[in-house]
Write a protein that binds this DNA or RNA. Structure first.
Lengths: 256, 256
DNA sequence: CGATTCGTTGACATGCTTCAAACTTCGTGG
DNA sequence: CCACGAAGTTTGAAGCATGTCAACGAATCG
């Protein structure tokens, strides 16, 4: 149906990093950590105050009207965020133009971590109501964490989980299995140097369980793929004949 | 069916942190980073060498036979791990005794991050074949990262994603919606001080999409709950009458 | 106050699960 | 090394939960 993201009047935000700057965007207010009444240990507050003794109030809280985007897929990762008040929906735009909801963030929730690896945001986040968001600039984060490598590891793990959620939520039996096989083809050791054969190390039961299906469904789908000339299954060895065909069946994937 | 984890001869491992210690476990070999031929930037290697100039070879690689556990649900978080060779399955034991597969880890993959928060492991990891695993002790990690708070944030995000994966893979329409409502009840602002009423800020479409269902299914399930006296729905306000009933329908949840 | 989005309900179609049974491979011990 | 039991895999048949299509009602927004 609605193939395009509806851009309303309050849409298209992006929270500015800098103190002022000529950003024209619907942040209703700009606040500092000082006025935040969160009692618990806040990451933003913690990372802002420790070791960096800037007593001047850093303006890192924004009040956003309903429907505002904090960031969009493709945006550079400028910060990680915390919901102070309100609620946020995170989603991905699939290649068919439909959106897939990944998460809802409530007060206290931290989001935007998947982009810490440096590849930019893959998902988008939009407010569901008037919402206050705090931000921790990536620059401060990178200084204080043991290197980009660690951030990469974390975001890789998060992205992979998102991919899995996405698969379970959107795809049918064939799509799930195709995704799984493609994923393994990327990650698993090739069978004796062969470029298109993989040796699965897990049981059908494990695969079925992972894909949220009955074991019989996995078997039948494999057979269907084989009958269709897409691949050949011999015990736990899978030889792929039609890579593009698999890609088509699998549908959208998170790139990284 | 098989309610208990089958403990085979090669089972029940846990990789020891210390150099020697009287651990009786099926690690076939104990190796140091020096002999690892991974060409890419390895987190373990990086964190072991930087700033901590221990030139003595740290024995942090283990060769594990098929079916060995790296850690189990409930175990304390001693380290984060990297697959050097082989493959690993991560799973959770559900309250009904069944297991739910969360992930497969291949060479280069880092796992065990969900426990960084300090609450111990919730999932278990087992080798699917003879597998070499590298480990980075948590102690080294904690020293180098900007505080436990940040680790908490990461593991919270990972755990929440796991919960979502788990829900999508195992639960039917009713279970998913019950889980969702309980989750919101925990996280969302209560409706004007009421202890058992929540105000949803997202559309039915968003909920359905998030739960991997049709919007009609969400409506019907809500009605079913209402007809069963479990709750009352008025627009976007949900008033819970039978909390325990919801819990029962929702089934297993990740605690934290 | 009209238009548009959101929500609800019914009827029907179907993809997947469940149940059942047979076959194959693996592992262990004689 | 072979034999036997256990575990893993495959296939068929039937039932059901959920998706799809359609239509209407309710609420929100400008």
């Amino acid at each position: 149906m609605a193939i395009q993201l509806q851009r309303t009047a309050t849409d298209n935000v992006g929270i500015p990093l800098s103190r002022e700057g000529g950003y024209t965007q619907p942040s209703l207010q700009v606040l500092s950590c000082q006025t935040c009444n969160t009692r618990s240990n806040c990451v933003v507050k913690q990372l802002n105050l420790t070791r960096v003794q800037s007593y001047q109030p850093v303006k890192n809280r924004r009040v956003l009207s309903k429907g505002s985007h904090v960031f969009r897929g493709g945006d550079e990762a400028k910060a990680i965020y915390v919901v102070s008040r309100g609620s946020i929906k995170s989603y991905m735009l699939m290649e068919d133009g439909e959106e897939q909801v990944l998460n809802f963030y409530m007060p206290g929730d931290v989001f935007g971590l998947e982009a810490m690896g440096g590849g930019g945001h893959i998902s988008s986040t939009v407010t569901l109501e008037t919402t206050t968001v705090c931000m921790l600039p990536m620059s401060k984060l990178r200084d204080r964490v043991l290197g980009q490598n660690f951030l990469n590891v974390i975001s890789t793990n998060l992205l992979r989980d998102h991919n899995q959620m996405l698969m379970l939520a959107r795809k049918d039996a064939e799509g799930r299995l195709a995704s799984f096989i493609l994923d393994m083809l990327k990650r698993v050791d090739r069978e004796h140097g062969s470029d298109n054969a993989i040796k699965l190390t897990m049981t059908r039961q494990d695969i079925a369980n992972y894909l949220g299906q009955a074991i019989e469904t996995v078997c039948r789908t494999l057979r269907k793929f084989q009958d269709g000339g897409i691949l050949k299954v011999t015990r736990r060895t899978v030889e792929i004949y039609d890579y593009d065909g698999l890609l088509k069946i699998a549908g959208s994937q998170i790139a990284r």
